[in-house]
């Protein structure tokens, strides 16, 4: 396959997200402008101007009309996808890290980093149908985890919120009462910061990637550990194929060590694993910095990766990928 290289960002990529139809690809980077691309040919459709800090995460509504972004400038913003116009800005006292829209796009979960005296928190905001009526009030605020909460997503039927972050613990919260329901056990859980979390297409299980050089597959309701994928390098990004039983892990050595070693030592590959057998299928090379973001097209026929090198690489699979055997 010949990947398409998209060089729109001037700083390392942080997050990638496809819309539901799989025709748009949203990219967030440490420069201040989230960008939307056409996912088939990589053409840039537009940028969302207004943030004043690194953008860490984004989510797009099911109808692809609304985008929500969380940024280090202590805001989370709602955008009109089509025009790039800012519709609303949630202001926090600390940098916003993860954002996720609920099923139905009526609620959003936004996490904030610990900052000054403020501890990290998970905020649940209600999203108005008409942006005119939007308010900044939190429906629910969850506190407790130590350190940054790198990812928070909605569980099945919006009944739970799953969070993971620097304390290496995966937690499931009740989204009504705000009580913590389940916590991953120390022995079987990750040993270091969880950097990424990705739900399966049907929402029955999810995958977490951690700096302890492993990725783990969990049941979304019971939080039982299903599989563990072990690799040689810290995992910064994970994705699951919606089409095949494949898991992709992205990562690489620390950015600080990149310039002092051979480029082949960096392991800046997107590693494909068989989801069930936990065996490595292969690697896709190309980035010259660690991979920070991975996303699968909802049709499962292409995926994109974003790296510390500022490039988004969009890969359309060759036909033989679909009959690959271990």
């Amino acid at each position: 396959m010949r990947p398409i290289l998209m060089k729109g960002h001037e700083r390392p990529l942080t997050f990638l997200k496809y819309n539901r139809d799989g025709d748009l690809l949203f990219s967030c980077a440490k420069d201040h402008n989230p960008t939307v691309w056409f996912a088939d040919n990589g053409e840039r459709l537009g940028t969302y101007r207004g943030h004043n800090g690194a953008v860490w995460c984004c989510d797009v509504s099911r109808d692809s009309m609304m985008l929500i972004t969380g940024s280090a400038d202590q805001t989370a913003k709602i955008w009109n996808v089509q025009t790039g116009e800012q519709l609303y800005s949630f202001n926090f006292g600390s940098p916003a890290r993860a954002v996720d829209l609920s099923v139905g796009d009526k609620l959003a979960v936004i996490t904030t980093d610990p900052f000054m005296d403020l501890p990290s928190a998970i905020h649940v905001k209600s999203i108005a149908t008409d942006p005119e009526d939007q308010t900044g009030d939190s429906v629910l605020v969850l506190k407790g985890p130590q350190g940054r909460i790198n990812r928070a997503v909605w569980g099945p039927l919006n009944k739970t919120i799953i969070s993971a972050g620097e304390d290496a613990v995966v937690r499931i919260w009740d989204s009504e009462t705000g009580k913590m329901l389940i916590e991953s056990e120390k022995e079987i859980g990750h040993k270091k910061t969880i950097t990424s979390l990705s739900k399966s297409a049907d929402g029955s299980h999810f995958l977490t990637g951690s700096l302890d050089k492993s990725a783990k597959l969990w049941d979304i309701r019971t939080l039982t550990l299903i599989k563990t994928y072990v690799t040689e390098r810290p995992v910064n990004a994970v994705a699951m194929s919606p089409l095949l039983d494949h898991v992709v892990l992205g990562g690489g050595q620390d950015a600080s060590a990149v310039t002092t070693t051979d480029h082949r030592a960096g392991k800046f590959e997107a590693k494909f694993y068989d989801k069930i057998l936990q065996e490595e299928i292969g690697g896709v090379k190309g980035h010259f910095g660690p991979i920070n973001a991975l996303a699968f097209n909802p049709d499962g026929k292409s995926f994109s990766s974003g790296g510390e090198d500022g490039y988004v690489r969009l890969h359309h699979f060759d036909p033989d990928y679909f009959n690959i055997k271990i």
Binding site: M1, R2, H315
Partner: peptide, 27 residues
């Protein structure tokens, strides 16, 4: 197009197709 993409023209070359063929390298 909107945002910074308004000024994108053909010569901007933001999006290029990789010149090298990349394969899923089997272990």
């Amino acid at each position: 197009k909107f945002g910074d993409a308004v000024h994108d023209d053909f010569g901007a070359r933001l999006t290029v197709v990789s010149t090298e063929d990349i394969f899923l390298e089997r272990p």
